[in-house]
Design a protein around this nucleic acid. Structure first.
Length: 407
RNA sequence: GGCCCGGUAGUCUAGUUGGCCAAGGACGCCGCCCUCUCAAGGCGGAGAUCACGGGUUCGAAUCCCGUCCGGGCUACCA
């Protein structure tokens, strides 16, 4: 979250007026509430074993009724620590308003009594979250749609706790994979850090994520966090799940990469180059990065694409297969190229280009025919940043040496 | 099984009060242009019976009913 530039006003790390913020430090509070609810008749102690509960559930399903956990509890043996189960009144319909889904009604006649405190004294999600929401005076509950079905039970708990006011609820659509299965932090490849390591920019990530389930208007794709905040409205959030599409994320990422200054890009690239073994974290390396950055900016969708493109600036490349092929029978020509470059007055892109084009003209070579062998000799590949600029950055001596060693 | 929610092109979406939608934008895809490669950029194109079937209406993606499909909940998971 910090990488994304998202921050929070209260929390275990920075404190705040409603602490403690770690559930394990609030266990006493949960236990107090659970016992209070028992005393007031909203819940009961349950000594049933999990087998008892399981059996009742099966039976209830086969009979088409809701499980009667209370009846089972009354028959259960009395030894051991009990769990505490909350009583769900069967003859009610719970209705609440959701900012994104609208009005939702649930017939509680189908909702079984549920455990709020486990036999080991720890609270279930249902109790903990409700106690916390009340104690911390939470005004807006915005969460994933997967938690929507738990809302009526939480509302019931609030009532039993004697809380009159109801927070604003908003259930956001889930993000799903390309097969439509919900992404989950429990099964997933999905931690933001993974995207950072894959070469995505935080601003691109934020922009893309905002587009999942929401849109600024009918045509804007690129916007800053500030613009999103200014325009955001829960009522315009979509109800249906959205598939995570890395390809579109890449397009957005490319956009933000292009928007960077060479200095910024060079800075961002350092760790990725170092990870690939390039000596980028030195004064010389950083200077090299700063000079190539302008050539890279419009050729990248992810920062991880940079190292392979600029490796030739840091070390002598071993030509790949295609480069090797392009170098066949080019010895004489490459020699002429070297000679032409040798006599250039100033080693600049413009002069390098002029010299190479003149040579191509003289030999009646199409540009592609003329330049690809040079590219292969110098960069070891057929795909690289623009050639003349690359040669300028590489320097005359190194360029000439590579040309000659390719002969 | 029961309860709840959802369903516009491969994908993200516009569409909230029915007519301006024989459905708009974007990613991706295809083609052309530019061009030293790859990109970026420009231009153009294909791609949606608005899940399906009924109904209401002069008129429905938008309202109603049913069906199908997907997901969530139905846990002493969260």
């Amino acid at each position: 979250m910090q990488w994304l530039g998202l921050d929070w006003d209260e929390g275990p790390d920075i404190g705040g007026p409603y602490g403690p913020y770690r559930q394990s430090e609030r266990f006493d509070l949960y236990r107090e509430w659970a016992h209070k609810l028992v005393e007031e008749g909203f819940a009961y102690e349950d000594h049933s074993t999990s087998e008892d509960v399981e059996r009742e559930r099966e039976l209830a399903r086969s009979e088409g009724r809701r499980p009667d956990h209370r009846a089972v509890a009354e028959r259960a043996a009395r030894d051991g620590q009990p769990s505490i189960r909350f009583i769900v009144p069967p003859d009610r319909t719970m209705t609440f308003h959701d900012e994104v889904l609208g009005d939702i009604s649930t017939d509680l006649g189908r909702t079984p009594d549920f455990v709020i405190l486990r036999a080991d004294g720890t609270p279930t999600y249902m109790l903990a979250v409700t106690v916390d929401d009340v104690a911390m005076e939470i005004s807006h509950i915005v969460r994933g749609n997967d938690l929507m079905a738990s809302t009526p039970r939480q509302l019931l708990l609030r009532e039993a706790m004697g809380v009159k006011d109801v927070p604003v609820f908003a259930h956001l659509p889930l993000i799903v994979d390309d097969k439509g299965k919900p992404l989950s932090k429990r099964w997933g490849d999905v931690s933001v850090a993974a995207y950072r390591d894959q070469g995505f920019l935080p601003e691109a990530m934020l922009n893309y994520l905002a587009l999942l389930g929401w849109s600024l208007d009918d045509h804007t794709n690129i916007f800053s966090m500030d613009e999103a905040i200014a325009a955001f409205d829960l009522a315009r959030v979509n109800k249906n799940p959205a598939a995570f599409d890395v390809t579109k994320l890449e397009w957005i990422n490319g956009h933000y990469i292009r928007a960077k200054t060479p200095e910024e890009l060079a800075h961002d690239l350092v760790p990725f180059c170092v990870a690939e073994g390039l000596a980028a974290d030195t004064d010389e390396g950083r200077a090299t990065l700063a000079t190539v950055a302008p050539l890279l900016t419009e050729r990248m969708k992810r920062l991880t694409e940079a190292p392979p493109m600029i490796r030739f600036l840091f070390e002598r490349p071993a030509p790949d297969d295609k480069a090797l092929k392009a170098l066949e029978n080019q010895a004489e020509y490459l020699g002429a190229v070297a000679t032409a470059l040798e006599t250039i007055e100033k080693w600049t892109t413009a002069e390098i280009e002029a010299a190479l084009r003149a040579l191509a003209e003289e030999r009646d070579l199409k540009p592609k025919k003329a330049f690809q062998p040079v590219r292969a000799a110098v960069t070891g590949t057929l795909v690289s940043p623009p050639l003349f600029e690359s040669l300028e950055i590489l320097g005359r001596d190194e360029t000439l040496e590579r040309l000659r060693s390719a002969i």
